[in-house]
Design a protein around this nucleic acid. Structure first.
Length: 465
RNA sequence: GCUCGCUUGGUGUAGCCCGGCCAAUCAUAUUGGCCUUUCGAGCCAAUGACAGGGGUUCAAAUCCCCUAGCGAGCACCA
């Protein structure tokens, strides 16, 4: 099976579906995962040089290793050869009709005057196309199908056209005669041994078109299924490479991996495992109707993958209140690193003499609250009076357990989320957390440590609750 | 307009090809309970769907027809 991306930008979440499904199926049925860059339009779908490797990185992030990687722009000679063979069989003709005129004829099921050209003339004109002797739009090579076919989309479609804009890849920058997707992809699928094709409903007619070529060559067409579009909920930004690119250009997004962008680099940066995405994508199946991917499904998958290893930390978000400690609380608090793994020990926090908690957690005056891993406190105005360490207060008397940080030694932390940045304070030990580590801020959610800034700020990317 | 296709709970999915075992599977979600020094994890329970209408049949989510809604193609884009 193959994944045939156009390398015109990094991938959005929807792009993960193809590698996820064919990768999973290839593993399951001992098949092969091929990547083929269908980069045959240097103009309107202009490839970006850096996107080739970017896409391969994203496939790697998803957990797959392609058996082969092809670039259509390396294979022009192959396409030309097949075009020549097709011409010899009388299956194609060069046509110099202006596009609009041909379209009118086609819609009336009328052949154009070039259709009955002899193969020799076509061959000569095609060689001129390859040699760059025509300008863009002057000449195309059409596959001779059935000009009266009831579906106008299938009538004598274009196989090769001239594009004056040089291809961005150096290896192909001198080429001007480019195959259309249906020709290139059809030839490649057969030549590279693809047995099963999955593609979008927008390419519903491709198989029907390509079958004409397959019939000329007496090839057997692969199994093909079409699936609908995927939409992803929870994002404000439209899942489209060009839209995201424009927002980045306009400065509304920081880059392709901005947490607000529905892209693969973004979810990766948030600490979401490729595997979580793959499972969710495979779960969508391959139906022809459009589907909505609920991010909650991805999050549920991810939570299962990371919960066990994510160390716990306290993180107090921006609306906060400070309380001076009174009474005689313990000198250090020792909440566990992970509640389900005692062997990982505790993190020892020196509370100092003031603690900071989130505004919604502030108890009414005179009421108690349990600072997790520390002890029970009764609020008296602006102070917290130590009220012992008898857990019965929580278990039997309904005192709330909340997270907190020492007000004086907490470390400034910026948490980047899908809804914008959240500034807050993490417990001091978070300053030592290693970039790329996935942690859980207790009662807040999971996040990936992104970097430790020199100005004492730690940056984390929020994953999900 | 012409051509092709789709429609199972909030979301996704199984079942549809080969009608009965489907008062419809599983996951996610939501809600409630238990447990827990997290609103995480775990456990339990509840909620909730065959687009509508005809027909065939002893029997239809499954077959046929119609209607509605949605989508795609009709490019010298992929």
């Amino acid at each position: 099976m193959r994944c045939a991306p156009n390398p015109n930008g990094p991938w959005h979440i929807g792009h993960a579906r193809m590698p996820a499904v064919i990768g999973t199926y290839a593993e399951e049925y001992d098949g092969e995962f091929i990547v083929r860059f269908d980069d045959t339009d240097p103009e309107t779908k202009r490839p970006l040089l850096w996107a080739y490797d970017e896409i391969l990185d994203e496939i790697d992030y998803l957990g797959f290793e392609p058996a082969e990687v092809y670039r259509a722009s390396d294979r022009l000679e192959t396409y030309y050869d097949h075009a020549r063979r097709l011409i010899e069989k009388g299956g194609a003709y060069t046509c110099s009709c202006p596009a609009g005129e041909f379209s009118d004829l086609k819609n009336d099921a009328e052949p154009c005057p070039h259709r009955d050209k002899d193969p020799e003339t076509t061959m000569a004109e095609f060689e001129s196309m390859v040699d760059g002797e025509y300008e863009s739009g002057e000449m195309v090579l059409r596959v001779k199908t059935d000009i009266e076919h009831k579906n106008p989309a299938l009538r004598d479609w274009v196989a090769f056209r001239i594009i004056d804009t040089p291809h961005p890849r150096e290896a192909a920058e001198d080429d001007r005669c480019w195959p259309m997707l249906d020709f290139q992809s059809g030839v490649d699928d057969h030549l590279t041994g693809v047995t099963h094709i999955i593609r979008g409903i927008d390419l519903q007619d491709s198989a029907k078109r390509q079958r004409f070529v397959y019939d000329y060559f007496d090839w057997e067409y692969p199994e093909v299924i079409h699936w609908g579009h995927v939409q992803v909920d929870e994002y404000d930004v439209k899942m489209s490479t060009s839209t995201i690119g424009e927002l980045i250009e306009a400065g509304d997004l920081d880059g392709w991996d901005d947490p607000r962008a529905p892209t693969l680099p973004s979810v990766e940066r948030r600490g979401i495992r490729g595997e979580a995405l793959v499972e969710a994508m495979v779960g969508l199946g391959t139906s022809t109707s459009n589907v909505d991917l609920a991010m909650s499904t991805v999050y549920a998958n991810n939570r299962e993958l990371i919960d066990d290893e994510a160390d716990r930390y306290f993180f107090v978000r921006e609306d906060h209140a400070d309380f001076t400690l009174a009474g005689e609380p313990p000198e250090t608090a020792s909440p566990p690193v992970h509640p389900d793994h005692e062997d990982r020990g505790t993190r020892d926090i020196d509370p100092g003499n003031r603690v900071r908690i989130e505004e919604p957690d502030v108890p009414a005056d005179g009421e108690r609250v349990w600072l997790k891993g520390f002890g029970c406190f009764r609020r008296d105005g602006e102070t917290f009076e130590y009220a012992g360490d008898d857990i019965a207060a929580v278990r039997e008397e309904g005192v709330d357990v909340i997270h907190w940080v020492p007000a004086d030694s907490a470390t400034l932390t910026r948490m980047r989320t899908m809804d914008g940045d959240v500034i807050g304070y993490a417990e001091p030990g978070f300053r030592e957390a290693d970039p790329d580590e996935v942690v859980q801020f207790e009662r807040v959610g999971f996040a990936r440590v992104d970097r430790q800034e020199a100005d004492d700020e730690t940056v984390a990317y929020f994953a999900h609750e």
